[in-house]
Design a protein around this nucleic acid. Structure first.
Length: 270
DNA sequence: AAATATACCTGACTGC
DNA sequence: TGCAGTCAGGTATATT
């Protein structure tokens, strides 16, 4: 499923193929994504030239001089480049054809993704109240510690809250807490500054490593669907219920927090 | 204000 | 082999 590293991988895979090229046609086969795709999107995109593809949280911004398309991959979405007139599958909901003869295709079996248009995407309702980017310098120990004061919610749910920090999905929340030796059930407001230092470093580390691993997917991105489980072999906690902790050998425990599965070591995450 | 629950959707998997 | 049931998960929104 696309977490931040995969969205970033998609961005890097797509941008070189569509930058400075003009949109020749937009085909929306299915408008019922998470929110109905407005015809405004197709209308505004048509004829525009792509100036860049950027990312904010897990949103891809396909930028033009006239505004930006805001694409979210949801849980099962992917974007990739194909030659024009490549037959579309049942879950291929949107094609953007370019003058170059290439097509950017959006595929999303579960249709949790979304597509919007905005002249000022960072001010868009969906983006305007997001927290800092986890890999940016303004996401640091002091910020996270301060933000956590007085909060009784579990630290895992706290770091998965996009108003606190974006891009930390379930898998990476589990992994980061494991790396920082913090019990996911602990209240966010009752964790010391020094431990937040470890946690911030762990979040940055796990995301940076996953982006690096995404480079593997990038190689066969062209024509592929970018959904390969590239980071799986590096997981320390997620999905390892009953298997031995690689630090202390105690079995990894699985619990549910906020209807999400949590995996952690009861012995060394305190 | 903060915490918690709900809704959206379908492929993959499990058990009969 | 087929079928019904369960799970997964991002995030806006509703409810407490």
């Amino acid at each position: 499923m696309p977490e931040l590293p995969e969205v970033e991988t998609s961005r890097r895979g797509i941008e070189p193929h569509i930058i400075n090229t003009r949109v020749a046609r937009v085909i929306v086969r299915n408008r019922s994504l998470r929110w109905p795709v407005s015809k405004t999107v197709d209308r505004k995109l048509l004829g525009e030239t792509i100036t860049s593809v950027t990312r904010r949280a897990k949103y891809l911004l396909i930028n033009t001089d006239g505004g930006s398309a805001i694409l979210h991959l949801g849980m099962s979405g992917s974007v990739f480049i194909v030659d024009r007139d490549t037959p579309a599958g049942v879950h291929d909901h949107v094609d953007i054809d370019f003058d170059s003869g290439k097509t950017m295709r959006f595929r999303d079996p579960r249709r949790f993704g979304s597509l919007h248009w905005s002249k000022t995407p960072l001010q868009h309702k969906l983006l305007k109240s997001l927290g800092p980017e986890p890999l940016a310098d303004d996401f640091d120990t002091a910020y996270l510690w301060e933000k956590s004061r007085g909060r009784r919610v579990s630290v895992k749910q706290f770091i998965m809250n996009a108003q606190v920090v974006v891009g930390v999905g379930n898998i990476y929340a589990n992994e980061a807490l494991y790396l920082a030796c913090i019990n996911p059930r602990r209240a966010a407001g009752r964790i010391a500054l020094q431990r937040y230092e470890l946690l911030v470093a762990a979040i940055k580390d796990v995301l940076a490593n996953a982006i690096k691993a995404g480079g593997t997917t990038l190689r066969d991105f062209y024509g592929g669907d970018g959904e390969a489980g590239y980071f799986q072999q590096q997981l320390e906690a997620y999905g390892r219920e009953g298997e031995p902790c690689r630090r202390c050998d105690a079995p990894i425990t699985a619990i549910v927090q906020g209807q999400r599965s949590t995996y952690y070591c009861r012995q060394c995450q305190t």
